[in-house]
Every structure is written in structure tokens, then in C-alpha cells.
Amino acid sequence: MVIISALASEINLLLIISLVVVFLGLILKRFNQPYIIAYILSGVILGPHGLSIVTDINVAQNLGDVGLIILMFFIGMEISLPDFLRRWKVAFFGTGMQVIFSLILMYILGSILGWSINRMVLLGFIISISSSAVVIKLIQDQANPTSKTSQNVISILLTQDILIVPMIILLTLLGGDELDVNQVILQVIGGVLIIITMVILIKKQKIKFPFEKILKDDHELQIFAALIACFGIALVTSLFELSASLGALVSGILINASDSNKWLHDSLHSFRVVLISIFFISVGMLIDLFFLKEHLFTISILVLIVYLSNHGINAVSLKLLGNTWRESLIGGSFLAQIGEFSFVLATLGLEQNIITIYGYQITIIIIAITIFISPFWVVITQKILGSS
């Protein structure tokens, strides 16, 4: 009876979440707005700071992390490594300028406000990372994924995701904790293995996976084969103390170079929709409406500073790399928000005593709000500059 009762409770919860998402989605559809907004609003309404229908944020975040892995896998499947290498200047210099300018901005702001150098570095890293989850979804919904602007933005996003590991190591050192030598060795070995894999892929151009022909017409086994492809390398990279999302990205890039791309894409599409929506719902649950109301002015100013600075920094970076002002400004609008990996950096900053509980709460809610605002910011920029 207890099992049946628990199952009924889970079914009721799933039903409520689905009803709220569909209701909000239908409203937003009438205004041609992306479903990301519906997902985040659902998290706000149903979460512990709303109606408290969902109180365990950790469960939602864990499911959201799985959704993020699937998203990175899908991103990888759309990336041709030779094409990415042809845009290495955009990826390397675009990301480098974003990080450097963000650190300079935080140094100037921190000098005025009396921050420690550790806090300046932490917040500089946090605002320099954009959201792969949001941007890729927006590009697919609103823009042409194969356009020059979209490809430049994706190149920068991928490089940002790779930079997360050295950022975490540096913040650990700044926090005063001893560096775990074994962990660093594992990360270096994992990084070298990924580089070797990519070099082999560049040389071979095309690869074949076992049982490709057998699975080609077997739609049931395709689903499980797709899950193995997605989570297999993700698990391996996590064993090397690297991001599971990075492993999923590498896996997707490998799939792109095989003949399995289409059926793997189709097999996981439904999982992708559900799990990615849960990721955005978990982001919405982090928005504390009472805390937001109490610190509305401060948060509003900081969100505006983040958007103007990130948009400006990325637009100037893209312009310096040879894009037109129009392409640069649209690209900057896609990269203006703070990304999901910045949640990890903020948590690490709290654990290392670089920021206080208050600073952590402010940072978390600003990240969540910038993700929520992102679709509106992109649409407004496109309308000002003309349709893309």
C-alpha cells in the first residue's frame, strides 16, 4: 500500500508539472515565445519558493543534469570537427577575450566596492560563461544553426565549456585548499585521451561503430544503443574527474563522423525534450521570489550590468574577429546570459569561502534570471537589427 501511495504521489506530481508546462506553453506559443520560458516559470510556480508542490530541488537538479548531458550529446552530433577547427580563431580568441574582459570588469567593480582579488576572479569567471543549454535551444528555435553567426556562437560556447576544468582548479587554489594531486593527474590523463581521440578523428574523418548495420532498422534496440553512446563516454570522463557533459559532447562529435548520426538523433529526441525541460524547471526552482522582492533594486542593477557588459564584450570580440557589426551584435545577444556551469563555480566559491551566503544567493538568482531573460533579449536585439 505504501508503494502504491508513493507511486500515486509521483504520478500526481508528474501530471501537475505537465499541466502547468502545457498551459504556460500554449500561452507563450500565441506570442511566438520559446518554451524555455514556460519551463522556467513552471519551476518558479511549483518550486519551494512558489506553491511548494515540488520541495526536493536536488532530485530535479539531478534529472536536469542528465538532461544537460543529453543536450551536450545533441550539440556534439551537430558539430563537424574539421569545420570547428576552421573556426579556431573565433573559438580561441573569442572565448579568451570574453574571459579577459570579464575579469577586467570585475577588477574595476571590485576595486570600487572593496572586494578581495579572489572574489573578483570568481565573479569574472562566473559572468564569462554563457549557457550552452539556452543558446543552442534558441539557435535551433529562432535562428539558422548553419549560419555564420550561429556557428561562431557555438564555437565560443564549446571552448567555454572546456575552460570550466582549469577555472575550477584555479578557484580551488585561490580558496586556500590543497590541490588534490591525484585528481589533477586523472584530469590531465583524461584531457590527453580526449585530445588523442580528436586527433585520430581529424585524420580518419569518418569512423564506424560496431553493429551499425544491424541496428539501422531495429528501432527498439536503437534507443538503448543511443543511450549507451550518449552516457558511455560521459561516464568515462567523469571517472577521470572531468565533466560528464564534456564526455557527452565528445561522444556526439564522434557520432557526427559516423553513419549513425540520424537514427541516434531520432532515437533520443523524446528523452531530450523531457529531460532538458526538467533542467530548466530546476533553474526556475532556484528563483526565490521573496529574496528577489527584498533585493529587487540590487538584483535588477546587477542583471542589467551583466547583460550590457556580456553583450558588449562578446559583440566587440566577434567584431574584432572579422564579423560585421550586425553579426557581432546578434551573436553577442545569444551569449549575454550567464550559463548553467556558473552554478558550479558559485557553489565552489561558497565552499572555498570566497563569497558569503548572501553573495551566493545573489549570484544564483542572477544566473537564473539571466537565463530566463535570454530569449527576450535575443528577440529584442533581432527586432532592432532586423530579422536574422
Rank of each mutant, 00 (worst) to 15 (best):
V134Y: 01
V135R: 02
V135W: 01
I136Y: 09
K137T: 09
K137N: 10
I139Y: 04
I139E: 00
Q140G: 13
Q140T: 11
Q140C: 09
Q140E: 13
D141K: 10
D141T: 11
D141Y: 06
A143D: 11
A143P: 00
A143M: 15
N144Q: 11
N144A: 09
P145Y: 08
P145N: 08
T146L: 14
S147I: 00
T149Y: 03
S150D: 05
S150M: 00
S150I: 02
N152C: 02
N152V: 02
V153G: 07
V153F: 01
I154T: 06
I154L: 13
S155Q: 08
L157C: 06
L157F: 05
L158D: 07
T159L: 10
T159Y: 05
Q160N: 12
Q160F: 07
D161N: 11
D161Y: 00
I162D: 07
L163I: 08
I164S: 06
I164Q: 07
I164W: 00
I164G: 03
I164V: 15
V165P: 04
V165H: 05
M167S: 07
M167K: 04
M167C: 10
M167P: 03
M167E: 06
I168K: 05
I169P: 06
L170Q: 02
L170F: 14
L170E: 01
L171I: 12
L171R: 04
T172I: 12
L173A: 15
L174N: 06
G175A: 03
G175E: 03
D177V: 01
D177R: 10
D177M: 07
V181M: 10
N182W: 11
N182H: 14
Q183V: 13
Q183F: 07
Q183E: 09
I185V: 15
I185M: 10
L186E: 05
L186N: 13
Q187M: 14
Q187W: 04
Q187Y: 06
I189M: 09
I189Y: 05
G190W: 01
G191E: 04
G191R: 04
V192I: 12
L193T: 00
I194N: 00
I194C: 05
I194F: 00
I196G: 04
I196W: 12
T197V: 04
T197H: 12
M198F: 11
K203G: 04
K204I: 01
K204C: 05
K204R: 13
Q205W: 11
Q205N: 14
K206H: 15
K206Q: 13
I207G: 02
I207W: 09
I207E: 00
K208C: 10
K208A: 10
F209M: 07
P210I: 06
P210F: 08
P210Q: 10
F211Y: 13
F211T: 09
K213D: 14
K213I: 14
I214S: 14
I214Y: 15
L215D: 03
L215M: 06
K216N: 13
K216M: 12
K216G: 06
D217M: 08
D217L: 12
D217C: 04
D218W: 07
L221R: 15
F224G: 11
A225T: 03
A226I: 00
A226Q: 02
L227F: 10
I228P: 02
I228C: 08
I228V: 12
A229M: 11
A229P: 05
C230W: 03
C230G: 05
F231E: 02
F231L: 08
G232N: 03
I233L: 12
I233Y: 08
A234F: 02
A234W: 05
L235P: 05
L235K: 08
T237E: 00
T237Q: 05
T237Y: 01
T237D: 06
